[in-house]
Amino acid sequence: MDAQNKVLFVGLDKALLETFANHEITHDCHVEYCSDSFSALQRLKASSYNLVVMEENIAPLDPFKLMDYVFHELQKVYPMVIVGNGSHEEGTYENYTRVNHPIDGAKLDQLSLSLHHANDTVEEKLFSLDYLNELSNNDQDFLEETIQLFRDTLAVKMNELDKAILMSDFEEVRQIAHNVKPSFAMLGNEKGKSVCQTICYEAKDADIPELSQVVKNEYKLIIKEIEKQFPKLKHYEKEDFDH
């Protein structure tokens, strides 16, 4: 494991924590511990982690509620592992990995794989339809119309962004970034969302042109991928975004 990897362990089973922390796979990891999900929430608000390992029975929020809160309120996505008592089958599910007690070496290796897998994939993910599917209960029409909206309305906003940069109207750029930030977030694009956030609240004027270019590039990359998955989109929209 990389030395900079940070793991948050949430639960009451200190023996399990010690087993985990002493295993060779976590040798170079920084492992933090908290006993309840409220404390975990405070840590997740304040810092970033490469992996969150939670016991199934944590309180006051159970693992799913905790991660739901982190995703929707803090707008962060962490790979998670739930350590269960055997009531559900072990395996890798859409958003998490489940392992059951007793935890042996093979299962610890599985946790290690989760960490490496997360490091490999989280940053590469250009877009995800998970949020829109959850919202619409997998309504295909809604999904396609919303993707179309993303493509068309952001094309206009990216052009407005260009004009605002040319005019050095950085307040306008901040407003555009504020407007498009939730669009990136709804498509699960962390980079676009986070750069928009930086433009809105942290960036100096001098840094804004470069950051705006990152947003535009991200938009173009997403559209390229979306058009592979939704080829019909090309037929709806006449204008192209050629910047």
Binding site: L132, L135, F142, T146, F150, N179, P182, S183
Partner: peptide
Amino acid sequence: DNPMVVKSLEFK
């Protein structure tokens, strides 16, 4: 004023 957010709110 974000059409995607409007659409999602309207739908839900």
